[in-house]
Design a protein around this nucleic acid. Structure first.
Length: 659
DNA sequence: GTGGTGCAATTTTTT
DNA sequence: ATTGCACCAC
C-alpha cells in the first residue's frame, strides 16, 4: 500500500525523522502505519507512544485510523491528542509541581480577555487590548516566564505587555487557573528544570509523532526537544508550504532546527500526491513556486488531467454566492456528486453570509464549520462555569459569570464591592460570600442573593461527592433553576428549543465520557474542545475558512473571494506578509481532487461602504492555460476559451450523431 | 439593578 | 450595515 519513501519513513525509528510531506502525499497513513509498526515490530508498548496533532478533529481521525491497524487494547492505551490536551494531562498529573491545586481551571480565550481588560489601564481601546493580549500570548508561546519576558522586552509596548503579563499571571495563580498558552509553557518549564520529572516523562513517552509539524511554536518545539532527549524517539511530519499559522506564533524555522539539534536527523520527502488531478497540482505548484523555498519539493500525480480550473468573475458578493450555489446544485447531477463532496472555502468568516443565503435559496443543504462553536454558546458556558466553580472555588472568573445566573439580584455594584472585600481578605470571591463579616457590609438584598448562591454551591458540592460527572451536570442544570430562567427569559420557542437542546447535548457529552473522571477534569478537557468539530455535518456542502480546510479533501472545491485585499488579506498586505497568504491559497487549491472553481467579486462592502475590487494577484500567478475565465458577460466569454469552444463543438457533434 | 438609547468598532485566520 | 457595549434614566 505504501510507496518506498512512505515505507522507509514508517520503518525508520532509530534516529529522529523529519518527513517533508507535500499536500495529499499520505502523511496520515505514514503516521498511523508507523504507530502500528512501533507496536507490532518494535514491540513498543502502546502506552508509551504519543501522536500529537493541532486540532481535536485531526486527533479523532487519527485515533480512528490507528484503531483499524492495532488491537483495541493498544488503541486505548495510545496517546493521540493535541499539544494542548497533552499539556493538560501533564498538568493534571503534575499539578503540585506546577504550583497548582487539584481541580485547577482552564481559562478560555474570553476569560483571558476579560482578565487582561481588567488589568490594563482603564479605558484602553480594543485594539490596544488586543495588542497586549497578543504580546502576552507571544511571550508565553516563546516559553518565557514573566521575568524573562520583562528582560527580553525590546520596545515600550513589549515592556508594558511584559508588566501586564506579570500581573496577569499572578491573578491566574490566585484563581488556581491556567490559560491555553500555559498548557504548553508550564509543562515545558517543569521538564526543563526538574530532572526527575523530565526523566519520568521521557520514560513514559518513548516515542513521539507530530503531525503538522510546521505549525509548532517555540515552546512546543522545546517541549518536543526535552521529551525526546538525546534518544530522539521522534517523527515530525510537516510541509513548509502549508505553514499558515505564523500569525499566532507558529515558527516554520522549527523545520531546520531539528537538524541542528539532532545531527543524526533523517529527512524523507514525500512528493507523490494521491489526491489531486494533474491540472490542479500543476496550478498549485506554479503558485507556490512564487515563494522562496529552503526545501525544494516537486509534487506529482498519476491522476488524470482533469477539467480546467474555472475562474468566475462576479459583480458583487451576492452575485458570486448565487453563481457558486447554482453550480454546486448542478454538480450533484452532472458528476453524481454527493453534497459532502463539495466544499466552499473563503479567507474570512465574513464571506459566509451571502453564501449561506444563496445556498438556502437554491435549496442546497450546507454545513458551516467552525463558526458558532458549541462551547461558545452562553448557556453551555454557564453550566461549564458552574462545574469549574464546584471543582475550583478560587475560580473568580467562573464565579462572576454564574453568580447572577439565574437572576439573584446581584449586579455590577455588588460584584465590585465583593471584589474589594475579597481582595482585602486575600480570599476568593466565593470564600468571601461565606463570611458573615463580608455579607454584613452589603445591602440586605445582595447579601441574601449571595448567601443563597453559596448555599446552592455547597449543596451541589456535597452531591458531587457521590455522583458521577454526568449526574452532576444534570443536577446543576436542574437545581440551579437555570432551565426555568431560560424558559422564562426566551420567548421565541425556536431559540428556546435550541438552547435547551444545547444543554441536553452537553449532558450527553458528559454521559459519553468515562465513568471515573471527575466533572471538573472533564470540564477542563471540554474547554480545549473549542471547535464545532463535534457534530457530524452529514451529507451537506461544507462551508469553511481556508484555515479550517487544512487536512481535508473534497472532490469539488470552490474558493470564493479571490480578491486583492481579501485573499491576500488587507492586513497581510500591509505587513508585507504575502508568502503566508500564498500558502493559504495553496492549501485551498490542494484540497480539490477533481474540480476547482475560483471566484472573485468586482465590488464588495468594506465597513458598510461599497468599494471596487481587483482580482487576486494569485490568479495571475496560476498557469493561464489551465484556467477558464467566465466573465460577467457570459455571451462574450463563451467563445474566448478553447476549452469551452471544444466542449461546445463536442455537444453539437453529439447532437448531430444522435437520433 | 435592570432595561433602554446612542456610539464605536468590525474584516483575518484558532488551541 | 450590523452588532456589541458603554452610559444613562427608571
Amino acid at each position: 500500500m505504501l510507496n518506498p519513501q512512505q515505507q522507509t519513513a514508517v520503518e525508520h525509528c532509530d534516529t529522529p525523522l523529519l518527513v517533508l510531506a507535500g499536500a495529499g502525499s499520505g502523511k496520515t497513513s505514514v503516521i498511523t502505519q508507523k504507530i502500528a509498526w512501533l507496536i507490532q515490530r518494535r514491540k513498543l508498548a502502546a502506552g508509551k507512544i504519543a501522536a500529537i496533532t493541532f486540532t481535536n478533529k485531526a486527533a479523532r481521525e487519527m485515533r480512528e485510523r490507528v484503531g483499524k491497524l492495532v488491537t483495541s487494547e493498544d488503541a486505548a492505551a495510545l496517546t493521540v491528542c493535541t499539544f494542548h490536551a497533552l499539556g493538560l494531562k501533564f498538568l493534571q498529573i503534575e499539578h503540585a509541581r506546577a504550583d497548582l491545586r487539584r481541580g485547577f481551571s482552564v481559562f478560555d480565550a474570553s476569560d483571558s480577555d476579560s482578565l487582561i481588560k481588567e488589568l490594563a489601564p482603564k479605558g484602553a481601546k480594543p485594539d490596544v487590548l488586543a495588542g497586549i493580549r497578543h504580546l502576552v500570548s507571544a511571550a508565553k508561546g516563546n516559553g518565557l516566564s514573566p521575568a524573562e519576558a520583562l528582560a527580553a522586552a525590546r520596545s515600550p509596548k513589549e515592556l508594558e505587555a511584559a508588566a501586564l503579563y506579570e500581573m496577569y499571571q499572578a491573578r491566574l495563580a490566585t484563581f488556581n487557573a491556567v490559560d491555553f498558552d500555559d498548557l504548553i509553557r508550564l509543562p515545558l518549564q517543569l521538564l526543563e528544570t526538574d530532572d526527575a520529572c523530565r526523566d519520568a516523562w521521557r520514560e513514559r513517552l518513548r516515542y513521539l509523532l507530530v503531525d503538522e509539524y510546521q505549525d509548532t511554536n517555540d515552546a512546543q518545539y522545546r517541549l518536543l526537544k526535552v521529551l525526546a532527549g538525546e534518544r530522539g524517539g521522534l517523527t515530525c511530519v510537516g510541509d513548509d508550504d502549508q505553514s499558515i499559522y505564523a500569525w499566532r506564533g507558529a515558527n516554520p524555522e522549527n523545520i531546520d532546527r531539528l537538524g541542528r539539534d539532532w545531527p543524526n536527523l533523517r529527512v524523507i520527502k514525500l512528493e507523490q500526491n494521491y489526491r489531486c488531478g494533474k491540472r490542479i497540482l500543476r496550478a498549485a505548484n506554479a503558485l507556490i513556486a512564487h515563494n522562496p523555498h529552503s526545501h525544494e519539493k516537486k509534487l506529482w500525480s498519476e491522476h488524470p488531467e482533469g477539467a480546467p480550473i474555472r475562474v468566475l468573475e462576479c459583480k458583487d458578493a451576492d452575485h458570486e454566492a448565487e453563481k457558486i450555489a447554482a453550480i454546486a446544485a448542478t454538480l450533484a447531477e452532472k458528476y453524481k456528486a454527493r453534497w459532502n463532496d463539495i466544499a466552499i472555502l473563503y479567507r474570512n468568516n465574513f464571506k459566509a453570509r451571502p453564501l449561506e443565503k444563496a445556498l438556502r435559496l437554491a435549496r442546497v443543504p450546507y454545513h458551516l464549520s467552525g463558526a458558532l462553536s458549541f462551547l461558545d454558546r452562553d448557556e453551555v458556558k454557564d453550566i461549564l462555569c458552574y462545574l469549574r466553580l464546584l471543582t475550583n472555588p478560587s475560580d473568580d472568573a467562573a464565579f462572576l459569570r454564574v453568580v447572577n445566573k439565574p437572576r439573584r439580584e446581584i449586579g455590577d455594584t455588588t460584584k465590585e464591592k465583593l471584589g474589594q472585600l475579597a481582595q482585602s481578605k486575600h480570599c476568593s470571591l466565593l470564600e468571601a460570600t461565606r463570611s458573615d463579616a463580608v455579607l454584613r457590609q452589603l445591602p440586605a438584598r445582595a447579601a441574601n442573593g449571595l448567601a443563597a448562591f453559596s448555599e446552592l454551591l455547597d449543596e451541589l458540592r456535597s452531591a458531587s461527592l457521590h455522583e458521577s460527572a454526568a449526574e452532576l451536570v444534570e443536577r446543576v442544570i436542574r437545581r440551579t433553576g437555570y432551565v426555568a430562567q431560560l424558559v422564562a427569559a426566551t420567548p421565541d420557542p425556536a431559540v428556546r428549543e435550541r438552547k435547551l437542546g444545547n444543554l441536553n447535548e452537553l449532558a450527553d457529552w458528559f454521559r459519553a465520557m468515562q465513568k471515573g473522571a471527575s466533572a471538573g477534569d472533564l470540564a477542563a478537557q471540554l474547554a480545549l474542545l473549542s471547535h464545532a468539530d463535534r457534530d457530524d455535518p452529514g451529507n451537506a456542502v461544507r462551508l469553511m475558512t481556508l484555515h479550517a480546510a487544512k487536512g481535508l479533501e473534497f472532490r469539488f472545491v470552490f474558493i470564493a473571494g479571490c480578491e486583492e485585499g481579501a485573499l491576500p488579506s488587507e492586513g497581510a498586505l500591509d505587513e508585507g506578509r504575502l508568502d503566508e497568504e500564498r500558502r493559504l491559497m495553496y492549501v485551498g487549491i490542494t484540497r480539490a481532487k477533481e474540480l476547482l472553481t475560483l471566484s472573485w467579486a468586482a465590488k464588495s462592502r468594506h465597513y458598510g461602504e461599497i468599494v471596487a475590487n481587483q482580482p487576486s494577484r494569485f490568479l495571475a500567478e496560476l498557469p493561464q492555460a489551465d484556467l477558464h475565465w467566465q466573465g460577467k458577460d457570459p455571451e462574450a466569454d463563451q467563445a474566448t476559451t478553447r476549452e469551452t469552444a471544444q466542449s461546445h463543438m463536442a455537444r453539437i457533434r453529439a447532437m448531430l450523431a444522435g437520433p
